[in-house]
Simulated scan of single mutants.
Amino acid sequence: MTAIVDDVRTEALFVSDVQRSQEPTLEVIREAITAAVTRLGESGCAALVAQEFGEHPDCAIGRMRWARSAVRLAFAA
């Protein structure tokens, strides 16, 4: 179950307006994830991730790596 939750969080951060270059705090990351899921829903986030990988796979890979790492840090137990 945790892996699924992490995947949803990662996709939500990926589609958020938060940028790695902003060096967001863990709180900003958590807030961005909540806002994206509230605005788009889980399936909406997943659809936008798929679209981005289809249109810009070279950029999407790096952003996904960053999002996955940021989620792990923001929700470390």
Rank of each mutant, 00 (worst) to 15 (best):
M1D: 13
M1N: 14
M1Y: 12
I4K: 13
V5R: 07
V5T: 14
V5M: 13
D6N: 14
D7A: 14
V8G: 12
V8T: 12
R9Q: 08
E11W: 01
E11N: 15
A12P: 00
F14V: 06
V15K: 00
S21L: 10
E23A: 10
T25G: 08
E27G: 15
E27I: 04
E27F: 04
V28C: 04
I29N: 01
R30Q: 07
I33F: 00
A35D: 07
A35P: 01
A36H: 01
V37A: 07
T38I: 13
T38S: 13
R39S: 10
S43C: 15
G44F: 01
G44M: 02
C45Q: 00
A46H: 04
A47W: 01
L48Y: 04
L48G: 06
V49F: 06
V49G: 02
Q51T: 11
E52R: 08
F53L: 15
G54A: 11
G54E: 12
G54N: 07
E55Y: 03
E55N: 11
E55A: 11
H56M: 10
H56S: 10
P57N: 06
D58G: 12
D58A: 13
C59N: 15
C59S: 14
A60G: 09
A60N: 03
I61V: 14
G62S: 08
G62V: 05
G62L: 07
M64F: 07
M64D: 11
M64A: 13
W66G: 07
A67T: 01
R68K: 14
R68I: 09
A70V: 03
R72L: 15
R72F: 10
L73Q: 14
L73K: 12
A74N: 04
F75S: 08
A76D: 15
A76V: 08
A77E: 13
A77P: 15
